[in-house]
Structures are given as C-alpha cells and as structure tokens.
C-alpha cells in the first residue's frame, strides 16, 4: 500500500526541478537572448518613456484619437493588471443597453457618421485589452478625427492603410489596425506640424 509513497515524493521533487525550474529557466534564457523585446512585453518607448505595449490597448475617449474596443476590466478600462471580459450573454438586456449607449456616444461625437456601426467599436473585447480594431471601425472614425485635428480625411485614410495588418500568410486571423500605434503616429505627425 505505502510502498510507492516515498518514490512518489522523490519523483515529484525530481520532476518539479526538471519541469518547474529547469524548463522555465531554459525558456527564459532562450527568450531573453533571442527575443528580448518580445519577452519583456513589446514595450513602446517614446522620448525615453514607456508609453505602452504594442500588444496591449489603451483607453481613448478624446475625439482627436482613434477609439479602440470598449473594455470590461475594472475598476478602470484597459486595466492590464486584471484582464477580463464582460461575460454578458447574447440576450442579456445589459448588453443591448450598453451597446445602444456606446452607439449614441459615437454619433454624438460625430453627427455625420450615421451608417451602421462596426460591432468592434461598441462591444467589449474578451481580454479588455484588445489592441486592435477592424479596418471598418477605423474608417468609421475618420470624419470625426479629421474635424478634430483639421486634417484631410485622405491623409488619415492613408495612415490607417499604413497601419493595417493583413491576415498572416494571407490566411490566418483577421485584417486589423493597431489603435495605440495609430494614435502615437497621429501625435508624432502633429508635433512635426
């Protein structure tokens, strides 16, 4: 009955060292040597300051910026220390109410944009940290940003195109725009005048 108790303990210790210490350390070593920027969070540096991660979205509400996905993290949106989705069911009235309110906010910010709204602009992401929006969602916001910044819509369209990532190898994933990088670029262009 107890014959295998001590071997079990010893085996656990040995395998813990192998899989719980040696393996993560080896991966960390390779990662830090081969892909240090990626392994440490793909941080974006501007004027010697960390301004975010390429892979983590940020909250934007100013009309002069592209807005990203609504975020369900708490207490503040895009809280990267507590990733979370809304978990609202498809028929939950709270979902339809939240979507209606977000559509109203979009239209209040730009009365000219009256067409159907791309879903990603008014539904929360799974992580609450989604860095991307669809091309349609970026296009939807161009007239607002053009007015807020006094820029030509064509210039903004070109910028969006420049930041559009196609599906990987033409098949994997969706076409998408990185909101943080797009906005950083807008600010950079504005500073240059």
């Amino acid at each position: 009955m107890f014959a295998n108790l001590i071997p079990a303990l010893r085996m656990l210790v040995v395998l813990s060292v192998l899989t719980g210490v040696a393996y993560p350390l080896l991966v960390t070593g390779i990662a830090q040597l081969a892909f240090p920027w990626r392994a440490n969070g793909s941080l974006l540096i501007e004027n010697q300051k960390v301004v975010g991660s390429e892979l983590i979205g940020q909250p934007f509400a100013d009309p002069k910026y592209f807005w990203g996905r609504p975020s369900a993290t708490s207490p503040q949106p895009y809280n990267s220390g507590a990733s979370s989705g809304s978990n609202l069911g498809a028929r939950n009235p709270a979902l339809a109410e939240a979507v209606t309110a977000r559509i109203k906010a979009l239209r209040d910010a730009d009365p000219e944009a009256t067409g159907p709204v791309p879903a990603d602009l008014v539904t929360t992401s799974a992580s609450g940290l989604d860095p991307h929006i669809s091309v349609a969602a970026a296009d939807y916001q161009i007239s607002r940003i053009a007015k807020a910044r006094g820029l030509a819509p064509e210039a903004l369209r070109a910028l969006v195109a420049q930041h559009t990532q196609p599906p990987t190898f033409g098949v994997l994933g969706e076409k998408r725009v990185n909101v943080l990088q797009l906005n950083l670029n807008l600010d950079r262009a504005a500073r240059k005048g």
């Binding site: 339809a96 991307h132 969706e174």
Partner: peptide, 27 residues
C-alpha cells in the same frame, strides 16, 4: 438584439462580423 441597436450586420474583408462581444479582433 445588436442589429436592432444599430450594429452593422454584414461581414466583409474589412469587418469580421457582428457578434464580437467577448472576442478579440485579431481572431
């Protein structure tokens, strides 16, 4: 419920579709 609230219901190459609550755009 979302289409009647005013969300675009037709996917295309620039737009992955309506039911994006709880999903990530890249997927």
């Amino acid at each position: 419920a979302l289409v009647s609230a005013g969300i675009d219901g037709t996917p295309n190459a620039n737009y992955p579709g309506t039911n994006l609550e709880g999903k990530e755009v890249r997927f």
